[in-house]
Amino acid sequence: MLLAIDVGNTNIVFALCMGDTIVHRWRISTSHDRTADEYAVWLHQLLALEGVSHAHIDAAIISTVVPPALFNLQRLCRKYFQVEPLVVAVGQIDLGLTIDLPNPAEVGADRLVNAVAAHAIWPGSLIIVDFGTATTFDVVSATGAYQGGAIAPGPNLSMDALYQAAAKLPRIAIEPPPEGKGSIGKNTVHAMQSGLFWGYVGLIEGLVARIAAEMPQPVTVIGTGGLATLFHRHTTAIAHVDYDLTIRGLIRLHAINTPKSLNTETEYI
């Protein structure tokens, strides 16, 4: 079984995969200081709860946008699972797509992994909107060339900045104002909900429209990340949502970079 590890700025997702199927997934907050032993204790308990032995994990792949976290995650894989993890890095693995940028090494691993998965699933030109700590807009051509994109502060990051900088404003959840309240807030909370949520919808629609206008062919827009489903319900700019897009990309990258003789499925009890 494959252990796919996606390290984001806020959370790390561990996913246990068999073939193309995501069997289990777990999430832990990202910490630069967490040791391999701490990861192991936490992960082994979760594996035990699902009736899975650590011995069933025979491969691993890591994508990280937090370089200091990489060492201990590699150590986790080597010490506790006896596998050498594949690390997503430009120039070191076969990505299955080209990078049409002056400096490919600048691109975050998560953005490339999303591009790999989306290009494999949907035909034609794509815009991938990933709602994370930052919201990224990534462009992939119909021929499989990663062409860049845009980076904006994520909704929760924007909300935190507003809460911390304005003494009288409360912390609120990212959601639209209650049904029937419209976009003109009649109290502070509704006004903040309107500005944050509908303002963000405007950002999504505006950037998607601008990027699409620069593309030679029609585009399909894919949403992923924690808030993708929420925004998808309130805008037609996003055509599809795949919450597991990054993990699917890691599965595909592992398959591309693993010899056929080793790329087999292992059954477990």
Rank of each mutant, 00 (worst) to 15 (best):
I121E: 06
A165W: 01
L230E: 14
N187A: 08
A145V: 04
Y39T: 04
I61C: 05
V129Q: 00
I172Q: 04
V41G: 02
T133P: 05
R248F: 11
A134L: 12
L43D: 03
C77N: 05
P176L: 04
A209V: 06
R210Q: 14
F71S: 09
E205P: 06
V65C: 04
F231L: 03
I5E: 03
I256S: 12
W198F: 15
L76W: 01
A15E: 00
E50G: 13
H254M: 03
V129G: 00
R233P: 00
G132F: 01
D20S: 14
A165N: 11
N9A: 10
N11Q: 13
D160E: 14
A134H: 12
R233W: 01
A115V: 05
T258H: 04
D130G: 12
L3H: 03
R233A: 14
R233V: 01
G199A: 09
L203P: 07
E38I: 02
L73T: 11
D100Q: 15
W122Y: 15
F14T: 02
K181D: 10
L73W: 07
L43E: 08
I222P: 07
V66H: 08
K168E: 08
A69R: 01
T35V: 08
T21I: 05
T64L: 06
A15P: 02
Q164K: 13
L203G: 01
V65L: 02
A212P: 04
G206A: 05
L101T: 13
P259Q: 05
R210H: 13
G8V: 13
F71T: 14
I61R: 00
G185Q: 09
Q147C: 15
G249E: 07
K181C: 12
G108R: 10
D110G: 04
M159C: 08
A191N: 04
D100W: 09
L227P: 08
E106H: 03
V139D: 02
K79P: 01
L169I: 12
F231Q: 03
D58I: 14
S53Q: 11
D242I: 05
V23P: 00
E205H: 05
Q217H: 15
V208L: 12
L230P: 06
T30Q: 11
A105Q: 14
V139F: 14
D20V: 04
V66P: 08
K186Y: 09
I151H: 02
T21C: 09
V7W: 03
D20Q: 13
I247C: 01
G132T: 11
A69E: 09
L162W: 08
A152P: 03
T188Q: 01
I22G: 02
T64F: 11
N103D: 13
L43H: 02
I99M: 11
L169H: 07
A118E: 03
V189Q: 10
S158D: 01
I211M: 07
A4C: 11
T10M: 04
A173Q: 15
T136R: 05
L112Y: 02
A228Y: 03
I269Y: 00
S31V: 04
A191R: 02
A60N: 06
A118N: 09
D130N: 15
I127V: 15
I99W: 05
P104W: 04
V201N: 05
S261K: 12
Y268T: 07
A228S: 15
P104A: 07
T264Q: 14
T236W: 00
L112A: 09
D242K: 11
E38N: 14
I62E: 06
P102R: 06
